[in-house]
């Protein structure tokens, strides 16, 4: 495991902690897309099917359990917690995320390493993760004022993906010397979707002004 990969996983963990902190301490999920969080639950459940069958390392098992557990916990808070669910931006979170699931599944039926349940769902989870942030980005464009923790959460998600790209560049030259098309192309597209957000986030940080995405 190289440093980029470790930093990437730690950044991913951090952004989930930031989100849980926001929800638990402020009892608010304003500006957070429930649809994106639900897509992440599907991403983790379909990707970690081999959690108990294929042993990689204790690190993998712990991280997978944390990602599945926290993503389900966040959806639970936003859907069922009596106080938090009142703060959900229901009217702005209108992206039809079901329109993302079917195309990713169909693509996985055609593009996969093996035509088995685990492999098709693994590919599906990679394609879905690539587009899962879209409802959240659309919601940010609609939000008049984005609170700092929400902006930080999305920024850290983007940073985790950039670190994974750097991890793949490192592994290509130093380790595997071959291209893993499915995760790398999906991951590249996923990271590219943050470019616009990164620009406005860094601009708002430099100018010390509120984060605002153009509609």
């Amino acid at each position: 495991m190289n440093l980029f990969r470790l930093l990437g996983d730690m950044t991913h963990l951090l952004c989930i902690v930031v989100l849980l902190l926001k929800i638990r301490t402020r009892k608010s999920c304003a500006g957070i897309s429930l649809k994106t969080q639900e897509l992440y639950v599907i991403v983790f459940l379909t990707r970690y099917l081999d959690l108990f069958t294929m042993y990689n390392s204790l690190y993998q098992i712990v991280m997978k359990l944390v990602f599945v557990g926290t993503s389900i916990g966040i959806v639970w808070y936003m859907r069922y917690h009596k106080v938090v669910k009142q703060t959900y931006s229901k009217n702005e979170d209108t992206f039809r995320h079901y329109f993302l699931i079917l195309p990713c599944f169909v693509l996985a039926l055609f593009v996969h390493l093996d035509f088995t349940v685990v492999e098709v769902l693994w590919s599906f989870s990679l394609y879905l993760e690539a587009v899962a942030i879209l409802p959240q980005l659309v919601l940010l464009q609609r939000s008049r004022n984005i609170d700092t923790l929400t902006g930080d959460y999305v920024f850290l998600l983007g940073v985790y993906r950039v670190l994974y790209l750097l991890n793949w560049v490192y592994r290509f030259f130093m380790e595997i010397h071959q291209i893993r098309w499915i995760p790398w192309v999906s991951g590249f597209i996923q990271t590219a979707l943050y470019a616009d957000f990164f620009y406005y986030y860094i601009k708002s940080w430099k100018n010390r002004e509120k984060l605002k995405l153009p509609a």
């Binding site: 996983d9 994974y164 991890n167 380790e175 499915i182």
Partner: peptide, 10 residues
């Protein structure tokens, strides 16, 4: 050593 396992990442 370089792991050939394509699922060695999260």
């Amino acid at each position: 050593g370089p792991s050939s396992n394509p699922k060695d990442e999260l």
